[in-house]
Amino acid sequence: MHFTVGLTGGIGSGKSAASDWFAAQGICIVDADLVSREVVTAGQPALLEIEQYFGSSVIQTDGTLNRAQLRKIIFNSPDAKLKLESITHPRIRLAIVQQLAYATSPYALLVSPLLFETDQHLLVQRTLLIDTTEALQIQRASERDQQSIQQIEKIIKAQMPREQKQQRADDIILNNSTYDALYQKLHLLHQHYLILANNS
């Protein structure tokens, strides 16, 4: 089993900036968000199963997933959300495991906003939380995504609370300053992970 670090963080925390930095150091990145999109592309078994269960309204005319429509359905129905997860999560997990197996760097990085919520933390040997204040999350996400503050607050509320993530993470970086300050902290952890990977 390849030594793997799980990287997570809430919206606007700087998770992507951290992931990009690790990638620049030559670390293999497996992005759970990308994998989750790949498993529901046209022709994939998961997409066919989603269509069978939720109906043709969740499929666009070009055969791809109508994410907005599906979001609407699962937002209003906990049962529908559970069903969707039962279709997608096992396939996402399998694809992640396969991609991690092909990692060629000293250690691999699994980037997942739902690392703890989906039990993906069980696939890694160490977890890193990129954390910041809620005020900074809202500021960064609204500047980046052009979403309303209300929308971002809703997303934050739907995610696991910061305090819970802090309790579960092995390593925590508080990203409340500049990119340079973040990179300095990441550099120290990178050295630490290289040693851990070497000894695993």
Score class of each variant (00 low, 15 high):
Met1Thr: 09
Met1Phe: 13
His2Gly: 06
His2Thr: 07
Thr4Gln: 02
Thr4Ile: 11
Val5Cys: 14
Val5Glu: 07
Val5Asp: 01
Leu7Val: 15
Gly9Ser: 06
Ile11Ala: 07
Ile11Tyr: 02
Ser13Arg: 05
Ser16Asn: 13
Ala17Asp: 03
Ala18Pro: 14
Ser19Pro: 10
Ser19Asp: 12
Asp20Thr: 07
Trp21Asp: 14
Phe22Ser: 11
Phe22Gln: 05
Ala24Ser: 15
Ala24Tyr: 00
Gln25Met: 05
Gln25Ala: 01
Gly26Thr: 11
Gly26Cys: 14
Ile27Ser: 12
Ile27Met: 13
Val30Asn: 12
Asp31Phe: 01
Ala32Arg: 02
Ala32Asn: 02
Val35Tyr: 05
Arg37Glu: 02
Arg37Cys: 09
Arg37Phe: 10
Glu38Pro: 01
Glu38Lys: 07
Thr41Ala: 15
Ala42Tyr: 04
Gly43Asn: 09
Gln44Glu: 15
Leu47Ile: 09
Glu49Ile: 10
Tyr53Met: 07
Phe54Val: 03
Ser56Lys: 10
Gln60Lys: 00
Gly63Ala: 02
Gly63Cys: 00
Thr64Gln: 14
Leu65Cys: 03
Leu65Thr: 03
Asn66Thr: 00
Ile73Leu: 12
Ile74Gln: 00
Phe75Tyr: 13
Asn76Met: 14
Ser77Cys: 12
Asp79Gln: 13
Asp79Val: 09
Asp79Cys: 11
Ala80Cys: 02
Ala80Arg: 00
Leu82Phe: 05
Leu84Lys: 11
Ser86Asn: 03
Ile87Thr: 09
Ile87Pro: 01
Thr88Trp: 04
His89Glu: 05
Arg91Trp: 01
Arg91His: 03
Arg91Glu: 08
Ile92Gly: 01
Arg93Asp: 06
Arg93Ile: 08
Ala95Gly: 02
Tyr102Pro: 00
Leu109Met: 13
Pro113Cys: 06
Leu115Ser: 02
Glu117Ile: 06
Thr118His: 04
Gln120Met: 14
His121Met: 04
His121Asp: 04
His121Asn: 02
His121Thr: 00
Leu123Gly: 07
Gln125Ala: 08
Arg126Trp: 09
Arg126Phe: 11
Thr127Cys: 06
Leu128Tyr: 00
Leu129Ala: 12
Asp131Tyr: 06
Asp131Cys: 13
Thr133Arg: 08
Glu134Trp: 03
Leu136Arg: 10
Gln137Val: 07
Gln137Glu: 07
Ile138Arg: 10
Gln139Gly: 11
Gln139Ser: 13
Gln139Asn: 11
Arg140Trp: 01
Ala141Phe: 10
Ser142Cys: 15
Ser142Phe: 03
Glu143Gly: 15
Arg144Asn: 14
Arg144Gly: 13
Arg144Trp: 04
Asp145Ser: 04
Asp145Met: 01
Gln146Tyr: 11
Gln147Phe: 00
Ser148His: 06
Ser148Tyr: 02
Ile149Glu: 15
Gln150Tyr: 05
Gln150Cys: 13
Gln150Met: 10
Ile152Asp: 06
Glu153Cys: 10
Glu153Arg: 15
Ile156Met: 04
Lys165Thr: 06
Gln166Ser: 14
Arg168Gly: 05
Ala169Ile: 05
Ala169Cys: 10
Asp170Ile: 13
Asp170Ser: 15
Ile172Gly: 03
Asn175His: 05
Asn175Gly: 05
Asn176Glu: 00
Asn176Ser: 03
Ser177Pro: 08
Asp180Thr: 14
Leu182Gly: 03
Tyr183Ser: 13
Tyr183Phe: 15
Lys185Tyr: 05
Leu186Phe: 08
Leu186Pro: 12
Leu186Arg: 10
Leu188Lys: 10
His190Gly: 09
Leu194Arg: 05
Asn198Glu: 12
Asn199Arg: 00
